[in-house]
Design a binder for these strands. Sequence first.
RNA 1: GGCCCCAUCGACUAGUGGUUAGGUCAUCACCCUUUCAAGGUGGAAGCACGGGUUCGAAUCCCGUUGGGGUCACCA
Length: 502
Amino acid sequence: MTETKIRTRFAPSPTGYLHVGGLRTALYNYLFAKGNGGSFILRLEDTDQTRIVEGATDSLLNALEWAGIEPDESPRKPGKYGPYVQSERLSIYKKYVDQLINEKKAYYCFSTSEELEESRQLQLKQGLQPKYNRKWLPEDMGGSMLRSEVQKRLDAGEPCVVRMKVPEKRRLRLDDVIRNIVWFEAETIDDQVLLKSDGFPTYHLASVVDDHLMEISHVIRGEEWLSSTPKHLLLYEFFGWEPPVFAHLPLLLNPDRSKLSKRQGDVAVEDYQAKGYSKESLVNFVALLGWNEGEGVEQEKYSMDELIEKFKLERVGKSGAVFNIEKLNWLEKEYIKATDNRILLQKIKPLLETALAEKETEMDRSTISSDDYLLAMIELMKERVNFVSEFVSFGSYFFFDPASYEESAVQKRWKENTPDLLSEFLSVLNDTEFKVDPLEEALKAFAQEKEVKNAALIHPIRLAVSGVSFGPSLYHMLEVIGKETCLRRIEKAIKTITVPTA
RNA sequence: GGCCCCAUCGACUAGUGGUUAGGUCAUCACCCUUUCAAGGUGGAAGCACGGGUUCGAAUCCCGUUGGGGUCACCA
């Protein structure tokens, strides 16, 4: 028995950005292909000329590449990437449409959109389900329209479309990997347009023809396609082709459980990219929306390689999944904690350069730009940040003197005796080596001598040095930032902060 | 409205006739602690409803309800 080669595809239309739902669809197709020694291809469905958005193709390609989902083959010249493009294949579709017409499985239709609308309204008024009425069905297909009449109109160049002739009484059976058996009655299916009056195919025709010609073995797509699948099944039958295996994925939902949409938050991959999410966390997160390993496996973090190894189409669920950002945030944080400091360093450098270019700093630029300094800062901050960008924003005091002091912290921590206490402690600090242990010893000894709690020094010093009430261990922070800067900041704080009046 | 899909904690889910219904995120409490995190421990929280089938249903069947998708010369 010969195994059919696994081939999957992702077939977006270039109408904008890559939707996170699209990302998941692409990912599942990719994972399934890779995990089964198959190929994954990319196909641009640009058959609606009116909806094409300039730059959309590039943004789609970039997002996919960023996520690490790369197609295996390309119709372009060797060495150059590029997806299959439907608008470049019009003659192919035309050929197959002609075949269907010759075989009386499709027919020309000259109805105008006004007529169509009128007919729809009429049927609605009669309480009927609006359906296309086959006024152009030729006599040799069971209609009353003369072939010669059709030909005459065609010759006159009258605009027309081609519709498929859906059989009267038929039950169509879909065997879906995820949804099992689904039955459809042919009478509920309209005579779908296959070729539009501008000569472009509709999605239905183009995708069936392409999936066949490109030898796609598994069509893995969103559930929104489920109800048009019987049309596709019929087309495979018309052509005498073996249909691919279908798998209709559950939808991604808004928190209110409607289909995930703009309006209720970000839906574009590039939005998440811009917000600073890493590809690892986004891919990981989206993979878990509808798929899991099962059988008591408690793993939450998966690398792309692990996903390829473990992904099983059969383990994809049936019900829609809410795109819950909180878990994504948690994953992002997990990834930062698990990332090597040197890799984080590379991610932070460009961000820091931008920040330094925009702002004056009283610190030594060569020091704060040095790898050693940044690595030390990363070590202190990595389990406190939510995004890589926060190393620079929340950790700004590693690079800039505080421009202001957190109001509530001043209220709470800056007491009447604080300025005097700090002034005195300053000279102690001046004689202290700026290392964690000596700093801690010095502070505790001083507090004891002055008969104050450690906290009476710790909190004000943190405030003076960082400007905020939260952050890493004080002693570690002081050590990294260094004596010169710390002393300068404490002096400045003593002069600047006014004791709050109770 | 027709057709189709779906239904376990707030969210993601495990579970395929017998479980104290498990895990993760979020949440709450406590511990650790100079703060914030991180970490540790513990808690609250769920089988939509109604009928069957069965000795026994989250699990199988039917119905109800609810949610969603789709009904274009858009994909």
